[in-house]
């Protein structure tokens, strides 16, 4: 796998309707050369439609898609030369692993010897050396995933498109593959567009995350900004666990100085794990909210605290496992104060 000169993919004002359903609503997105962008959204948000439009399987109603400097929106899929990894893997069941991986090379008329060599190299990259003669039916889900990946990169595409490639794998394997795909990208530097509905996966794997809702990209930022500074309530709730209080209500139940609040802000957001049971360090710069402890749930690495505020709203806080002494002292039904540092509060 030699290094290659990467190209950017630029999506400009692309729209797609299915009957009355607006699958893509004037979407624009640029994936820089060699960048890894994850498209994150719930089902029906249009994320797969967008990927399929870039792959060339769906013709948008309007808009342009650039590969480097050339507009490819009317180019058939088989002339785009993008590697695609499908959710169902889409391996050819009547061929063995080697035939699957050499397929894109055969299409290009690469001589058999060279094709075999390159396929073996690609299988090595995905840690499946020695599996060439296996039938697809003999492989586990994780191995099929790797074959699909090898097949998508073996012809050295300038763009790699992945449509929820890990959603059929179990959790442990999925997290392993996320790291491997990330490493593979670091090595090959292919411009990559990656669709997922798993927020953790998107944050783990991508340079930037595009959050989609109802056919629009609502936020495009690096993972930390997406998590810390969501632009609206949808992003805040879709990614991570958050307590969102309308400002008027927050001023009533939160004790402490909220500080300068932008005039356009309408609510504040606190991540569940940013709530603390006690203040530490500097006493200043903390806010607190009081409520009734309704339940404590042990979840392995943390406890989930369910708290009802004075005005009846239910919020959740998360205490890491090293707070076991503090959590152990709690009793359901008691009043409780949750503390949060001022700079951990984000305004929407």
């Amino acid at each position: 796998m030699s290094s290659r000169s990467a190209e950017s993919v630029r999506i400009e004002a692309v729209s797609k309707m299915y009957g009355d359903f607006r699958a893509l609503d004037d979407v624009s997105l640029t994936v820089e050369a060699g960048e890894f962008v994850a498209i994150l959204g719930p089902s029906g948000s249009g994320k797969s439609t967008l990927l399929m439009a870039v792959a060339g399987f769906i013709r948008p109603d309007r808009g342009r898609i650039f590969f480097g400097d050339s507009d490819i929106v009317r180019l058939p899929a088989n002339q785009r030369g993008f590697g695609v990894v499908f959710q169902s893997y889409a391996l050819f069941p009547h061929m063995d692993v080697m035939a699957n991986v050499t397929f894109p090379l055969q299409v290009r008329g690469v001589p058999q010897d060279a094709a075999r060599r390159r396929a073996l190299a690609a299988l090595d990259v995905v840690k499946l050396g020695g599996y060439g003669s296996r039938r697809i039916g003999e492989l586990s889900g994780g191995q099929r995933q790797r074959v699909a990946l090898a097949r998508a990169i073996v012809f050295e595409p300038k763009v790699l498109l992945m449509d929820e490639p890990l959603s059929a794998l179990d959790k442990i394997l999925r997290e392993e593959m996320q790291i491997e795909i990330r490493e593979l990208h670091n090595k090959l530097q292919i411009t990559t567009l990656y669709v997922t509905h798993d927020q953790r996966e998107a944050l783990t794997i991508a340079d930037r995350v595009a959050v989609m809702d109802k056919g629009k990209i609502v936020q495009l930022d690096n993972p930390e900004t997406i998590y810390r500074r969501p632009v609206n309530e949808f992003v805040a709730r879709f990614i991570g666990e958050a307590t969102i209080l309308p400002l008027a209500e927050a001023r009533a139940v939160v004790s402490g100085d909220l500080g300068a609040v932008a005039p356009s802000a309408y609510a504040l957001m606190v991540r569940s794990e940013d709530f603390c049971l006690a203040r530490s360090g500097d006493e200043n710069g903390w806010l607190a909210v009081g409520g009734l402890l309704r339940g404590v749930v042990f979840q392995g690495d943390s406890w989930l605290l369910q708290v009802d505020l004075a005005d009846g709203q239910a919020i959740t806080a998360r205490a890491q496992k090293h707070f076991s002494a503090e959590v152990g002292a709690l009793e359901v039904g008691q009043t409780i104060d949750l503390h949060v540092q001022r700079d951990r509060v984000h305004f929407l």
Binding site: N78, F82, A90, F103, V107
Partner: peptide
């Protein structure tokens, strides 16, 4: 026949 197989072949450059 899974239609993804046909799409996959196209993505790899195969003609119809």
């Amino acid at each position: 026949i899974d239609s993804a197989l046909i799409r996959a072949a196209a993505s790899m450059g195969a003609s119809r």
